[in-house]
Amino acid sequence: MYLVIFDCDGTLIDSQDTILHGLSVGYEAVGLPMPDRRTALSIVGLSLETAFLQLVGAENAHLVPEMANAYRTSKISRRKLGLDLDPLYPGTRDVLDRLGARDDVLLGVATGKARRGVDHMVEVHDLGGRFVTVQTADTSPSKPHPDMVLRAMSETGAEPLRTAMIGDTSFDMEMARAAGAHAVGVTWGYHDRDRLRAGGAHVVIDHFDELYDALDARLAFDGEPA
Rank of each mutant, 00 (worst) to 15 (best):
N60P: 00
A176W: 10
P144Q: 01
T136F: 14
L63T: 00
G189I: 12
V186M: 08
R98I: 08
L96W: 13
F171T: 13
V64L: 07
L127I: 13
A183W: 03
D192P: 04
R197E: 06
L150S: 03
R102D: 09
V122D: 04
R72C: 01
H120D: 15
T187W: 00
D192T: 05
D97K: 00
M148G: 03
A101D: 04
A137P: 03
G167K: 07
E123Y: 06
T139Q: 07
L85F: 01
L83M: 09
T111M: 06
D192Y: 03
R98Y: 02
G112I: 07
D84Q: 11
T92W: 03
K113T: 12
L196E: 00
L107G: 06
Y89L: 02
A183Y: 02
R116E: 06
A178C: 02
Q135V: 12
H182F: 10
L106E: 07
A179Y: 03
T73G: 00
R72K: 11
K80Q: 14
K113C: 13
V134F: 08
K113D: 10
K113I: 11
D104L: 01
D194P: 11
G117T: 02
T139C: 01
S154F: 05
M121Y: 11
M67C: 10
L196N: 00
M175V: 08
V132Q: 09
A101G: 05
F131Y: 09
G128I: 04
L99G: 10
G100P: 09
M173Q: 09
K143M: 13
R78H: 06
V184W: 12
G82T: 15
G185L: 07
P160L: 15
M173S: 03
N60C: 00
S74D: 15
G100F: 12
E59S: 14
H62Y: 07
Q135K: 14
L161Q: 14
A178V: 01
H125E: 07
H182V: 08
N69E: 02
L83C: 02
T136V: 14
S154W: 09
R130K: 05
S170L: 01
V56H: 13
R195T: 13
Y71C: 09
V64P: 10
G180I: 02
V105K: 14
V134E: 12
L88D: 00
E155C: 00
R151Y: 03
M67S: 11
P90R: 06
A114R: 12
K75R: 03
P65C: 13
V122N: 05
G180A: 01
D194E: 15
V56R: 12
G189W: 10
R116H: 04
G129Y: 06
L99A: 09
P144T: 01
R93E: 13
W188Y: 15
T136L: 14
V124Q: 14
R195M: 08
K75G: 03
R197Y: 01
D138N: 12
V64I: 05
Y190T: 14
L99R: 03
L107H: 08
R116D: 06
A176L: 10
T92P: 07
D94Y: 02
R151V: 02
A152N: 08
M165T: 04
T139E: 13
H125K: 10
P87I: 12
G91N: 14
G112N: 09
L85Q: 08
H182C: 07
E66F: 00
M148W: 02
V134D: 11
M153R: 02
A179D: 01
A114S: 10
